[in-house]
């Protein structure tokens, strides 16, 4: 990156360290932090949307729909999440390729043959010839979908509870004013449920942050991958030889996560105070008293 770094073997001390930390591989490492943040930024709304759908389904008056919503939340909670992560990534991949093979392949043989999963070349997702970028993007998309599915179930549970926590009298009053079901939902239930959902959702956000290292298991080149890769001992054959430094890399990751959760805690506490304003809860009442 810098002109000084042209010959890493000749430099020492701080210059060496600054050259080492700005080498090409390290820039990839720093980008992988962006991958993690991107995953959080995409997954959180997606999981919230899934959860909202699940909670709406569970509240539905149509029995099969309500059973589906409740079953979805119950199943995901009973089983270790990592099982889902390992399962869905292969299952989704195979499912997509099977569906695509029905459309594009000449022969429609059942793809699970003995010890192989076989579809024709044209049905591969992404195609074998596509660039490395598409392979990475596809892996990332599968990861996002799996995360959203698992965390959606938890969000569904939280939101279902929050919808039930809104005082019944408020909904009945709205109905007495002649509002339709949809209107009651949009105008009275929706604005009020968030304050009840927030403790559960902030808990979920913390869990989501702490779940991001599992990206590594899904085959995405994330921070854990790079920490292992860069930290491993490097012989003289490499540009920057060093002994096994994985401990320090993982220590760095630990500090990153600790800072991240701490900042989230502070932001969520502020958000909770903001949402409590004017609500018919103990926190809202305390605020009204303090103001008066």
């Amino acid at each position: 990156m810098f002109a000084v770094c042209a010959d890493p073997k000749a430099i020492e001390g701080l210059t060496w360290l600054s050259c080492y930390l700005t080498s090409g591989k390290h820039l990839d490492f720093y980008w992988s932090f962006v991958t993690v943040l991107l995953l959080l930024a995409v997954t959180a709304p997606a999981a919230l949307a899934m959860g909202f759908g699940g909670a709406m389904a569970a509240r539905s008056r149509i029995l099969p729909l309500s059973l589906l919503g409740k079953g979805y939340a119950a199943l995901v909670r009973g089983v270790p999440d990592i099982v889902f992560f390992l399962f869905f990534v292969i299952a989704l991949d195979q499912g997509l390729e099977y569906l695509k093979s029905l459309a594009v392949c000449a022969d429609h043989a059942w793809p699970w043959q003995g010890l192989e999963f076989r579809v024709c070349q044209e049905a591969k997702v992404p195609l074998g010839a596509s660039s490395a970028f598409w392979h990475q993007a596809y892996g990332f998309a599968l990861a996002v979908f799996t995360f959203a599915l698992v965390f959606g179930a938890f969000a569904a549970n939280v939101l279902y509870g929050a919808m039930n926590a809104v005082p019944k009298a408020q909904l009945e009053t709205a109905e007495a004013y002649g509002m339709s079901h949809g209107q009651v939902f949009r105008r009275v239930l929706m604005p009020q449920m968030w304050v009840y959902a927030l403790p559960g959702l902030s808990n979920l956000w913390m869990i989501l942050i702490k779940a991001t290292p599992l990206l590594f298991l899904l085959g995405v080149k994330d921070i854990v991958y790079w920490a292992r890769e860069l930290g491993g001992s490097k012989t003289q054959a490499y540009e920057y030889p060093h002994p096994d430094w994985r401990l320090w890399y993982f220590l760095g990751l630990l500090v990153f996560y600790l800072c991240f959760t701490k900042v989230s805690e502070i932001v969520l506490a502020r958000l909770s105070a903001r949402l409590s304003r004017g609500q018919a809860t103990a926190a809202g009442e305390a605020m009204r008293r303090a103001g008066a």
Partner: peptide
């Protein structure tokens, strides 16, 4: 505050 996964590593 940190992932168990990282703690294991």
């Amino acid at each position: 505050g940190s992932p168990l996964f990282i703690q294991f590593f």
